[in-house]
Amino acid sequence: MDILIAGGGIGGLATAIGVARSGHRATVLERHEAFAEFGAGIQLAPNAFRALDHLGVGDAVRDRAVHIDELRFMDGTTGERVASMRLTGGYRERFGNPYVVVHRNDLYEPLLAACRAAPGIVLRADSPVASYEQDDAGVWVVLGTGERVAGAALIGADGIRSAVRRQLVGDGEPHVSGHTIYRSVIPMERVPGQLRWNTVTLWAGPLWHFVHYPIGHGSYLNLAAVRDDGAREVVTGDPAERAHVLGEFPGLGATARQLLELGEDWRRWVLCDRDPVDRWTDGRVALLGDAAHPMLQYAAQGACMALEDAVFLGELLREGGEDEVPRTLETYAEGRRDRTARAQLVSRDMGTLLYHAAGAEAVRRNAMLAALSQEDLYAKVAWLHGAGGDGR
């Protein structure tokens, strides 16, 4: 079958590989003039590697990744270490894979290379999907140029502002969270030696938090600082003055402040997501990744969920023919809806109840987290990081 994929991001490329490995042809329609990934650091839990291994690119991503030793949760005002989850030893034994951090390109480029090497995958840049049409025999994508491209199925992997979702679900603009994130990447050589931790460290404060971790084989430090400022207008990557960023985090403790002050060339985004929806399919059309279940970054699972989607869908397409495409897509949606909806809602809760608590709520949060053993912490994340993430 010819499977059309709207969007050439992480989810779209992973879907193309899954389709090709299932014996079908994939055409990826990317709206930008080139296939490229934008952004900085990204965290990948073991469930992502379960999917990446299935797609044949797991080792390539491992080779580019920083294998993290620990997730640390710090009180951002007092500097107290509240809790930490070790990611070596028992963690890897339990979940079967590492927890890593990478620059987004270090995930994207192995996927892109695999697509370019696959004879059944066609990559078309400068091909923005505007809408779709279908009948019982097939589906047609209408590009922004007016060109029509035919296939047996269309997978909308075109992001949080998906044109496919706009037609299929029609739920308007994304939900604006009211949280602004400031991002910077700095050379590790500028970081004092005693602060070059092989950890993902989160400093939680009242209505703000600050995260940092190494990327680029440890050559850079990724900084991400979030302020619950009630923002209501969408911002995507605008420059932010250093003085403004430093002033947005009052009460930040001395060590965290030292790291924040290293940041340069800051850019800001206002974070958005959507509510979970039941409808992911329309006949021969289905949504995937951020087009289906965009989530805030607080559970670090957005890319992981898209990779799981791609693997699950690819395996289902292996089993059915053209006449069965609508039912196959519905089976895919049924298998993925509950898990991804839970991840969406947990991500929202983490950003408010866990990371941004203040006063007595922060004291209670710290006491709750400090009381958890390593096994308790592993149990908390087992539903996400463990096996079973393919939806079956």
Rank of each mutant, 00 (worst) to 15 (best):
M1P: 10
D2H: 12
G7Y: 10
L13D: 00
G18N: 08
V19K: 09
A20R: 06
G23I: 01
L55R: 04
L55S: 01
G56K: 02
G58H: 09
D59W: 00
A60P: 02
R62E: 10
A65I: 03
E70M: 12
M74H: 12
M74Q: 11
E80W: 10
V82D: 08
V82Q: 06
A83S: 11
R92N: 08
N97W: 07
Y99T: 02
V100G: 03
A113F: 04
P119H: 00
R124T: 08
A125Y: 04
L154R: 14
S162W: 06
P174A: 12
L195A: 09
W197T: 13
W197A: 10
T201M: 06
G205Q: 13
P214C: 12
P214W: 10
G218E: 03
L221M: 13
R227Q: 08
Q258R: 14
R267H: 08
C272R: 11
D278C: 00
G283I: 03
L288C: 00
P294S: 04
M305D: 11
L307F: 07
A310K: 01
G314Q: 02
L316G: 07
E319A: 12
P326G: 08
T328Q: 12
T328V: 13
T331D: 15
D338E: 15
T340N: 15
L345M: 14
L345N: 12
S347P: 02
R348M: 08
G351A: 01
A371L: 03
L372F: 14
A379R: 07
K380P: 01
A382C: 06
G391I: 00
